[in-house]
Amino acid sequence: MLMPLFIPSTLFPSTMASWSLVCLSLLTLLLHSTAAGRVPAIIVFGDSSVDSGNNNFINTIARSNYEPYGRDFDGGRPTGRFCNGRLASDYISQAFNLPSVLPPYLDPTYTIKDFAVGVNFASAGTGYDNATSNILGVIPMWKELEYFREYISKLKGYQGEVKAMETIREALYLISVGTNDFLENYYVLPGRPSSYTVEEYQNFLVDIAEGFVNELYRLGARKIDLTGILPMGCVPLERAMNGQLPFSMGICNEEHNRVARDFNTKLQLLVEKLSRERSDFSLVYGDLYDIFDGVIKSPVAYGFDEVINSCCGDTGIVEIGFFCTKYVTCSNADKYVFWDAIHPTQRMNQVLANYIVNTTLARFR
Rank of each mutant, 00 (worst) to 15 (best):
C324H: 09
T345K: 02
Q350I: 15
T359M: 13
Q346R: 02
W339T: 07
A353V: 08
T360N: 05
N349F: 03
M348L: 14
T329L: 02
Y336N: 07
A341D: 06
G321T: 09
I356P: 07
C312R: 01
T315Q: 14
I356A: 07
I320G: 07
C324E: 09
E319I: 05
C330T: 02
N332C: 00
C330I: 03
I342D: 00
I342H: 02
I342F: 10
F323G: 08
Q346H: 06
I356E: 05
M348S: 11
N349Y: 06
L361V: 01
N358E: 15
D314W: 09
V307H: 06
Q346A: 06
G313Q: 01
K326R: 12
Q350A: 14
F323P: 05
R347A: 10
T360F: 04
I317E: 09
D305G: 11
C312S: 04
C324P: 10
T329Q: 03
V337Y: 01
D340V: 10
Y336H: 12
V351A: 06
F322C: 13
I342S: 00
F323W: 13
Y327R: 12
I356S: 05
Y327N: 13
N349M: 03
L352C: 01
W339I: 05
V318G: 08
E319D: 05
T329S: 07
A341E: 10
H343F: 11
N349E: 04
V337H: 00
T359E: 13
I308W: 06
I356G: 06
N309C: 01
A362G: 10
C312I: 03
D314H: 10
V328S: 15
E319Q: 09
I317F: 13
R363Q: 14
V307E: 03
H343W: 11
T359I: 13
N349T: 02
A341I: 10
W339C: 06
K335M: 12
Y355G: 05
N309S: 05
C312Y: 01
K326E: 10
A353W: 04
D334V: 11
F322K: 15
D314G: 04
H343R: 09
I342W: 02
I308K: 10
D340M: 07
D340Y: 08
G313V: 03
G321Q: 06
V307W: 04
D305L: 13
G313E: 00
V318L: 12
E306I: 14
D314N: 10
C311L: 00
R347V: 07
M348R: 07
E306H: 14
D334Q: 13
H343A: 04
P344L: 13
R347I: 13
G321K: 08
N354C: 11
D305K: 11
Q346D: 06
I308V: 12
A353K: 04
T329M: 02
G316V: 01
V351D: 03
F323E: 11
K326N: 10
V357C: 12
I317R: 11
G321L: 11
S331K: 10
I356L: 12
I317L: 10
Q346Y: 03
Y327D: 15
L352Y: 01
I308D: 05
F338H: 03
D314A: 09
S310K: 08
C330G: 02
V318E: 04
T315Y: 08
A333C: 11
